[in-house]
Design a protein around this nucleic acid. Structure first.
Length: 742
DNA sequence: CTCTTGAAGGTTTTT
DNA sequence: CCTTCAAGAG
């Protein structure tokens, strides 16, 4: 490969060609590191004759993994499916599925999410008779998680706790928690890493097998690896030492999750023979944006010296707008997007709105809805964490892994079977006495004293599960779920409820069904276990689809690794960003982490960056007055445009900042709500036929009743003009407006 | 045992 | 604001 053929600059070339031995690539934002990684993999296969299956690449999201595989495929044309490209968690699961029994787990172990962890911790706290006022479950979960990140086992934790009675108590919960997980044949997220490393440490032959397999290892976003992940990688790479890590210390933003910035800062100490390559040319952003980012991050101490530069034009100034309230802020953003799309030929997907906390998405959602702008919110409540989804998944989990007592407990009385807390307590007491598993106790419920009428209910529950389990042998996952829905009457109950909320839940269930269908179509060997695993490890960002035309809303954390032509950084206020916690806390390194987050945010923008803030804002039902973020003040004045309004702005009536009434807003959201799958509808298929035409009277969920005055076939979608009785004339896309003919 | 109601308490960021 | 938890009636 030569430079002209690949379009790589000399530094990038060097990174691609340096394949033997440890390599640290310090890749600034937008410096083309993904290109380097893909070309490096391609070059290994094509030019150096390395077998695809001898390569492992760790990416930050499943989506990034898929894209990398695709790009390699384009360059090389074969073998990409044999490369291990995946996240840390997925790689570990894949390894553990084959060897978990060596660690005392069955290979079909369940994966517990944060919710599951929490219920388990609560259970244990109750059992240990701990006062929930004195001990916070969140704190305990965090403590256990960080212990695992550092590979500290319960015994060690207890020793380290010394005479601190509180930590001693934590240690007790930790030990019990770990025992319980094992008993349930389950692992939490952290365990996936920890157990894999344990596997490698305890079984040298297993380690050796994988060392032989993964002769070339690459890790993306290395600045955000934690200690276990570092151990995992270094163990695997210990034999052939072909370890290439790519990262940017300025973009380390996951300290709260155990990310250890030392991993990147001291890579050269751990691997003294490491080659270090810096990629400092930015191909993404304009001069002005890059300068702003450079100035902000320069305020941090203890970073590797570097300065990004670009050959890109200077570009627009950075817009800074301060508003009276969060409502006005959101309105402005929605308006700017509408304007850009209407007058500048921009696409909705050219825009992203980034904020510090998920809670900030609300206002934007509301205003975008009003402005008829298609959007998608990334993050927030995970789809698979919704109650109805977790309930149904719990059935599937119990079928797959009979030892998952936590899942059994979740569904034993869902839907209502008349098996209440009193009954469950009796069974649990007896179970503890006998030293058996909860589910096994249910099977032998006739021996449990004092059950009375509940006994029959338990019997019918367990026999229902047994039947399902038998059917699992020949039914597909989809059929199985239908069976569950049918037999439990889960959807029927919701239908009977007849509320908005119930309807939304049913919609979610429908979506779950189609997700299963998708899975069964696309997976090589679809199985119940495979589906549950996939579900446990997806993140919301994985479902973002570049083809679809919508504005993306997400936290700064979720935006890592992405880029957009136009970025709004919202809520630039002290107390929001940087967050209240870091300002009041006394750890200056936390402020630096926030600053890195700001750096990440700024560098997402390719052409245009807008910073917004509000003088006053409703937080938790209270009005807060915030100063403009200190980060904004770190940007040189000459890079900023304060121009109040641009172009003519229609004379606005004085705004009443009254939030849309909850019910109306909820209803609109409902009508509009964006399911990942519906997302495709926007771009791929317009409504094939409209059930109304010019002259018809229609109803819009927000604007009320009106008459259709025009319908234009815009190719992708119909653009409908409606003259509303109340709201005046509006143009809107048919697939969004959800107009109902009257 | 279930459902309703009211009060209290709590918020970064996520695989 | 929104979720979670406890208490009390049916």
């Amino acid at each position: 490969m030569n430079q002209t053929e690949t379009g790589l600059n000399p530094m990038q070339m060097e990174a691609v060609e340096h394949t033997e031995g440890p390599l640290l690539i310090l890749a600034g934002a937008g410096s083309g590191k993904t290109r380097v990684l893909t070309h490096r993999i391609a070059s290994l296969i094509r030019d150096k004759g390395v077998n695809p299956w001898n390569i492992m690449a760790i990416t930050f999201t499943n989506k990034a993994a898929g894209e990398m595989r695709e790009r390699v495929d384009k360059i090389v044309g074969y073998g990409s499916e044999r490369i291990w490209v995946s996240t840390f968690h997925s790689s570990c699961v894949r390894i553990l599925r084959r060897h978990a029994e060596r660690l005392g787990y069955a290979n079909n172990f369940a994966i517990y999410d944060t919710d599951d962890q929490k219920s388990l911790i609560k259970d244990i706290m109750k059992r240990l008779q701990m006062d929930p006022k004195l001990y916070r479950d969140r704190a305990i979960m965090a403590a256990i998680s960080s212990a695992k990140d550092e590979m500290i086992e319960p015994d060690q934790y207890r020793i380290d706790a010394g005479i601190d009675w509180k930590l001693q108590k934590y240690a007790a919960v930790y030990a019990e928690y770990q025992a319980e997980l094992k008993k349930n044949n389950a692992m939490d997220f952290d365990d996936l890493l920890v157990q894999t490393v344990k596997l490698f440490q305890q079984f040298p032959e297993v380690l050796d097998y994988y060392q032989e397999q993964f002769r070339y290892i690459m890790v993306d976003e290395y600045q955000d690896t934690n200690t276990v992940q570092f151990r995992f990688v270094s163990l695997l790479a210990a034999k052939y030492r072909n370890l290439c890590v790519v990262g940017d210390d300025d973009q380390s933003i996951y300290k709260f999750r155990g990310a250890n910035i030392e991993n990147i800062l001291s890579f050269e100490h751990v691997f003294p023979d490491a080659k270090v390559i810096k990629l400092e040319q930015n191909y993404r952003s304009t001069q002005n944006i890059l300068n702003a980012a450079n100035e902000v991050i320069a305020n941090n101490q203890g970073r590797k010296a570097k300065r990004l530069w670009t050959e890109n034009p200077e570009g627009d100034l950075i817009d800074l707008r301060q508003f009276q309230s969060g409502f006005e802020e959101a309105e402005y953003v929605a308006g700017e997007i509408t304007r850009g799309v209407r007058t500048e030929g921009k696409k909705y997907r050219d825009y992203a709105i980034l904020y510090r906390t998920n809670a900030q998405s609300r206002l934007f959602e509301e205003k975008l809805l009003l402005a008829n702008v298609p959007y998608k919110i990334v993050g927030g409540v995970n789809f698979y964490a919704r109650r109805e989804i977790k309930d149904l998944l719990a059935y599937l989990r119990v079928i797959e892994n009979p030892e998952d007592d936590l899942a059994v407990l979740r569904i034993i009385n869902v839907p209502r079977r008349g098996i209440g807390a009193a009954t469950i307590n009796k069974v649990q007491d007896w179970e503890a006495e006998q030293g058996i598993r909860f589910y096994d106790a249910l099977l032998e419920a006739e021996y449990v004293p004092g059950l009375m009428r509940s006994l029959n209910k338990i019997k019918s529950f367990t026999s229902f599960l047994q039947v399902l389990r038998a059917k699992a042998d020949y039914l597909s996952v989809k059929e199985l779920l239908n069976e569950i829905i049918e037999e439990t009457g889960y959807v029927a109950d919701l239908q009977a409820e007849g509320t908005e909320e119930a309807a939304a839940r049913i919609e979610n269930i429908d979506e779950l069904i189609s997700k299963i269908a998708d899975y069964e179509e696309s997976a090589e060997q679809p199985s119940l276990g495979g589906f549950l695993q996939e579900v446990a490890l997806v993140s919301d960002i994985d479902s973002v689809d570049e083809e679809s035309d919508y504005v993306l809303l997400m936290t700064l954390h979720s935006a890592k690794g992405l880029e957009f032509p136009n970025v709004f950084l919202a809520g630039m206020e002290d107390g929001i960003f940087p967050s209240y916690m870091t300002i009041t806390g006394d750890d200056p390194s936390e402020l630096e982490e926030e600053r890195r987050l700001c750096y990440v945010g700024i560098t997402r923008a390719m052409q245009h960056l807008t910073l917004t803030c509000a003088r006053q804002r409703m937080i938790r039902g209270e009005v807060q007055y915030n100063k403009m973020s200190r980060f904004v003040k770190e940007i040189p004045r000459e890079l900023i445009s304060l121009e109040r309004e641009r172009g003519e702005i229609e004379d606005r009536k004085p705004k009443m900042d009254i939030p849309t009434r909850g019910s109306v807003y909820a209803a609109m959201k409902q009508a509009f709500r964006e399911k990942p799958q519906q997302a495709k509808t926007f771009s791929a298929q317009k409504a094939t036929k409209l059930d109304y035409e010019i002259g018809d009277t229609v109803r819009h969920i927000k604007f009320g009743v009106g008459i259709v005055t025009d319908i234009v076939d815009g190719g992708r979608d119909y653009e409908v003009t409606v003259n509303f009785d109340q709201a005046g004339t509006k143009k809107m896309f048919a697939s969004f407006a959800k107009l109902k003919k009257l």
